[in-house]
């Protein structure tokens, strides 16, 4: 077990192709992260999220030989998870989250946005957070997802580019637009904002 823990994802991919059991250690590295990512983007139950993650890992296993080693494995698995969420959304019209459903996630996202978007005005913290939460709920899905990847999953622009299959420049633009869009919506919720960066 210790040996596997010290291996890189790429080494584990290679070993998984030779020995099915090694795939367990690869899944173990990502199961919590991917499950959390699915739940951050949807409002589905734990069981439904587990069904999706099962599909994700089976797809990952089937496509191991197609893994492009120029990519980070984590970007690749997030991409497959992203595609699976979209597939499920189209197939079953699963509910995409209006905002991250987890209270802690909400707080993190609000904190991240507060760090990059200066919110002026003398609001009590709770009142401000509630207004930010409402503003976030009105953001288009694509902006919300990019904010989740950037601020909750802590992905770099290049990684987001690989996950969403969009040019890095477009990712940067969309993050800026997400912030601008947020700023406009925030205005409607009587939040005075200024973008810091």
């Amino acid at each position: 077990m210790n040996d596997y823990e010290n291996m890189s994802d790429e080494q584990l991919v290679q070993l998984s192709l030779e020995d099915q059991d090694c795939f367990y250690y690869l899944m173990k590295r990502y199961d919590i992260k991917i499950l959390r990512y699915i739940k951050r983007l949807t409002t589905i139950s734990q069981e439904e999220a587990e069904d999706i993650i099962q599909e994700v890992f089976i797809k990952v296993y089937r496509n191991l030989n197609g893994f492009n080693r120029k990519l980070k494995f984590s970007s690749w698995i997030y991409r497959i998870a992203h595609n699976e969420i979209i597939n499920q959304y189209r197939k079953t019209k699963l509910r995409l989250a209006m905002i991250p459903s987890n209270i802690e996630d909400q707080a993190n996202l609000i904190d991240s946005i507060n760090d990059t978007i200066e919110i002026n005005g003398a609001y009590e913290n709770l009142e401000k957070d509630e207004r930010v939460r409402k503003a976030l709920a009105e953001l288009p899905d694509k902006y919300r997802e990019i904010l989740v990847l950037r601020y909750l999953e802590d992905k770099s622009y290049d990684e987001i580019s690989d996950i969403l299959r969009k040019p890095p420049g477009t990712v940067a633009t969309q993050i800026n637009r997400a912030k601008t869009s947020f700023k406009k919506i925030a205005g409607r919720h009587q939040l005075n904002t200024g973008i810091v960066k």
Partner: peptide
């Protein structure tokens, strides 16, 4: 969950 998925992969004889 990873253990369950591995079992399913084995049971369904999923191959890359």
């Amino acid at each position: 969950i990873s253990k369950d998925i591995l079992q399913k992969i084995k049971k369904d004889e999923v191959r890359p």
